[in-house]
Design a protein around this nucleic acid. Structure first.
Lengths: 250, 250
DNA sequence: CGTACCTTTGACGGCTGTCAAAGGAAGTGG
DNA sequence: CCACTTCCTTTGACAGCCGTCAAAGGTACG
């Protein structure tokens, strides 16, 4: 089963028909280079991309001449799901690392929704969780210090990665420059650097070029005041309703 | 046609069957009092509410003891759509003014999605636009001054209201206290007050208890650097695909 | 081997939060 | 109709987090 199916299956139980339908969209994954641009602002919405390996992001240019990262996309995510009902892109999307992607025309999402209610609900679950991620980031931006925000983001990213493929907190891949960290958190690169410096001095963690090493997980979580409620996958009530809808569906 | 149908119909063309289906959910609207609480954090997700008149919001308590408004809900909006795939609420939802609401069990959303692909797409369009609203607010929070953010929010709210029912920018209802404005924008009430003072001195606008009067729309838009792209409703490509799906659907 | 990007460090300034206190407006109960 | 309470608005003084500017060293890549 592919990463993408696993992502959808995290929220609902996939029937064999659902799996077949999804497989038909995952034919020949393409290799995407680092910094490869998938679309830009004002471009017509066409293909979305299932990210099968590597990291990507969507970006907006801000009025003050900076770049703001809107969402960080990890393996298993759908790049552009949040914009598939728009006629034109507002964001730019590009790869942060080399990776593999699977194009999927936005109209095909309509086909998926028409073909399978469970898959439609799973897509709602995914988009709702993206929104929850965004909400949490806004909360952090408005009510937390830069240091706490950075720690929060490290934990969030670790947990998202760990869900896709088990990794260790003591040392995990993190191909994000200080400048990019600033674009994600809305902080200046200079300040990011100062924070990382103190985190290293305090023996909490150290960010290297391509990875992070965590020395003191306890203090990491304490200072980040991380509450993982918003990352949950459970959907009790709706699963029952879905079962009722198609008791004999293959 | 109800406000709710108009909201959905902004994105797609509703068939008669779609309208009938929606009507079956809009039986007996209830009156909701000011400050009435619709749900609280950690409560099981059950009913959503179609807001037919009045203003509402969803709120999160932050770790620093403040309240952060997550979303402002206006007539025609669905309260809780963003959480219908979760098993438990994270937010609290409550009325900001007296109004009328129509309960709708979250499992019924599944029925709607199963019954009509166009309605399912319309729901995706709505949730995607909520996410776009949130994204824009985060962008403002990270890259704009408090004054510009406040002006941006005034324009955004005016445009959202105007879409539901034509109003005039020179004077429109705005039942939001300075304290609440702070909770929405993530600013202290004290600072909100100072900004409103200068806006009044600069003869741009004045906020009264229950409404806003705009004196200088030009400067309002200039200072807010408002770009309305993210509020758009168009969905060209997908409408064509929907038409293909059910050429003869009633 | 050169060029571009990333990281590091210091000095300085401003936007916005906190604390405190007082007056005004609205709703409540007698 | 009045007394009381509660919330909202207003204002001043002060402090701190974080951005900006500038410059230099380090690292990767062609």
């Amino acid at each position: 089963m592919s990463l993408f199916q696993a992502t959808l299956g995290r929220h609902i139980d996939l029937s064999d028909a659902d799996k077949d339908l999804l497989s038909s969209f995952e034919h020949q994954p393409q290799t995407a280079n680092k910094h490869q641009r998938l679309w830009g602002p004002r471009m017509r919405v066409g293909d979305l991309f299932i990210l099968q390996s590597g990291w990507a992001c969507s970006i907006r240019a801000t009025s003050d001449g900076e770049q703001q990262v809107i969402e960080l996309l990890l393996p298993g995510d759908i790049i552009g799901l949040r914009e598939f009902t728009f006629s034109h892109h507002i964001t730019e999307a590009s790869m942060l690392t080399r990776g593999t992607i699977q194009p999927l025309h936005h109209a095909n999402i309509v086909d998926v929704i028409a073909a399978s209610t469970p898959l439609a609900i799973a897509l709602f679950a995914i988009i709702s969780r993206q929104e929850a991620l965004l909400t949490e980031r806004m909360l952090m931006a408005l009510h937390r210090s830069a240091r706490s925000r950075l720690l929060h983001f490290v934990i969030e990213t670790y947990l998202r990665l760990d869900k896709v493929q088990a990794i260790t907190l003591a040392a995990f891949d993190f191909p994000v420059s200080q400048r990019l960290l600033g674009s994600i958190l809305g902080l200046s690169p200079v300040h990011i650097n100062r924070i990382l410096k103190t985190l290293e001095q305090d023996e909490i963690l150290k960010k290297f070029r391509g990875h992070i090493e965590v020395y003191d997980a306890q203090r990491l979580f304490d200072e980040a005041q991380f509450d993982s409620d918003y990352l949950g996958n459970e959907m009790h009530g709706l699963k029952q309703r879905l079962a009722l809808l198609s008791p004999g569906a293959a």
